[in-house]
Design a protein around this nucleic acid. Sequence first.
DNA 1: AACTAGCATTTTTTT
DNA 2: AATGCTAGTT
Length: 757
Amino acid sequence: MLDPDQLLNGLNDAQRQAVATVEGPVLVLAGPGSGKTRVLTHRVAYLIGVVGVPAWHLMSVTFTNKAAKEMKERLGGLIGPAALDQLTIGTFHAICARLLRRETQALPFDDRFVIFDTDDQLRAVKQAMVDLNLDEKTYRPQSVLGAISSAKNELIRAEDFVAPSYWHEVAGRIYKRYQTVLRANNALDFDDLLLETALLLRDDESVARRYRERYGFLMVDEFQDTNTAQYAMLRSLSAAEDKDAPHNLCAVGDEDQSIYRWRGADYRNITRLRKDFPGIKVILLEQNYRSSQTILDAARAVIDVNAHRTKKALWSELGDGDKLTLFEAYDEQEEAAYIVREIQRRTAGGGRYGDCAIMYRTNAQSRVLEDAFVRAHIPYQLVGGTRFYERREVRDMLAYLRFVHNPRDEMALGRIINVPPRAIGPKALTTLAARAQAAGQSLWEALCSLAADEIPDELLPPAAHLDARGRGALVRFQQLMAEAIANRDLLPADQLLDQLLDLSGYARWLKDGTEEGQDRWENVQELRGLALDYHHLSPQEGLGAMLESVALASDTDAMGQGEGDRVTLLTLHSAKGLEYPVVFMPGLEERILPHSRSIDDPESLAEERRLFYVGLTRAMRKLYLMHVFRRTLYGSSEMAEPSRFLRDLPAGSLEQRSKSGVVTPNNRSATARSSATTWAPSRPPQTQAGASAAAAPAAASNKAQLKAGDRVRHSHFGAGVVVSSAVKDGDEEVTVAFVGGAGVKKLMQRFAKLEKV
DNA sequence: AACTAGCATTTTTTT
DNA sequence: AATGCTAGTT
């Protein structure tokens, strides 16, 4: 038993209430940095240690493995390992997968089902479209998959799919066929895990009752990110309809941080929850333990523009702190250079690299930054980007393992049958499919009977006839896989992988002497290292366990915080839940944040605003907001307009910088001062009138002011020599070779502020 | 069947 | 700019 006072000590009133209100439903609206993880862990500890609820009655659901892991770690210290073992903590998908494997007797798949990732899903859609004889141009598999996925998230099965348009009618047909493909492969996709669980709990009262009785206490983190299926599942588990049931559901969330609408999340589930549980106790966590008041005020001003939400008044005891710095750079290189300079300045003054994070909208933005960091010898860590499990070689080897584990997995088969190239092309594949069809076999069975020479060609339709070459290639493949399958219960996963790498010729194929081949080989070895974690299990269980955990894992959690003192580069999406003393947000421009794809839909725009809000509230002490005058996007350089969100920042919280120093209200132009909003570009006054900067004065003298050989100075790059200059559309474009590390740069004289020396 | 050149596309990310 | 896919060539 724990001492309640000790447990609740150090929590504020609202937090304490959230922890100790254990009867009836609770909704905790937790602003950023308000200690929600703390509340969740302490609540679990309170239930177990103070109220005396057996640990196996508790379920705590998260969205990411990382969050689940963090919760386990923090709980370990509070309740001890024994209780921790009995708790159900995990992601929605992991919990659903486990539940479904236990309940397969009433379901159209067996407990060895595999989980299809996005790549497999796409293959399955394509397969379905081939079956239905549909053209991939008119119906893009990606879009069809999107439609299927949204339907599943809305709990709509293929047979219930209602088509509002002809396109959807076709999509509905593909959906049905797609499910057939999935079932034939004994596979579920990510969305199925949720849908099947939600529908099972909704429609099978006896199963639902069993789980309701077991899980008397539910806790959900990031509730604003739930979709309809997840919501339905929680609703069933907490018996919303049953007035006499205790429904001890505790949902923690923040509608202002809902940034996953595009994958089915619906923050209105928060409103729905309040309606479904009329007596729900709503607790607001408004005290922020992370950021300075200045940062919170700025964030609040930005988010308060969004309508239909519970306004929260975030406050902090950490004082006002520094103002936000708004910086306009000429282009993304200069933007990066500014970040480099600021980081160098801060570290020279005793700051740590690890205190700084750069948060951007799109992964593509990281490139320039990485470049600049490498040149400046600043250590950094990139989160996300091309992920480990998405690498071709890793997927290929996983497909080999998956196929060995479950020879019915034809998506895996499709992936590996001709990788490395072994003369099995589309022709041989269709013939094989025809043979399977004719004999009523799976592809693998057809391969086996081909190898055993069981069915003479004469008994099969002509489309299933094989020539000697095709037959030879297919039989060789069958033999190699048969050998691996024979060993699957004898060898642990890592040795099985070694064997496959060797037998399949994949190892030899990779090691082609190129640097890329070496890279890929190392990734395969890393995968092999992962397999070592399953040595304590029998080969059979080990392989299954490894494949499941890989299917449900991502590597953001594996990457961890990274070693050493480094700057972190990450997208705004992956920044959720994290905090850094110093945060840089580059690229605050129209078409980037808000993203061009979101600009004409108010709902998407509101979500972009929330994304900006998430970024702002990651910062503890210092925020740098930056935008450029000209940005290269998709290969072409265009004028960039500052993000509309910048206009909503309160005047008093900002400090503007130009390359030459701080811009105070006094030396700012009159137009900027008199405007209702506080944004004012730091470029020269004559261009402030509008984006039509090409009409600006420098064009007046239609000849270049600098010529080759002139010595110049640039505020960032230092001294240099003009290589060439020309007037283009009224802008003087100067190519300068800088002395030192900066190299040769093309600059617009007027904005780069080159000084002649 | 394997290789290659030209063409279109371009968010965010977890599971 | 870079990537991935299709269609055409070897």
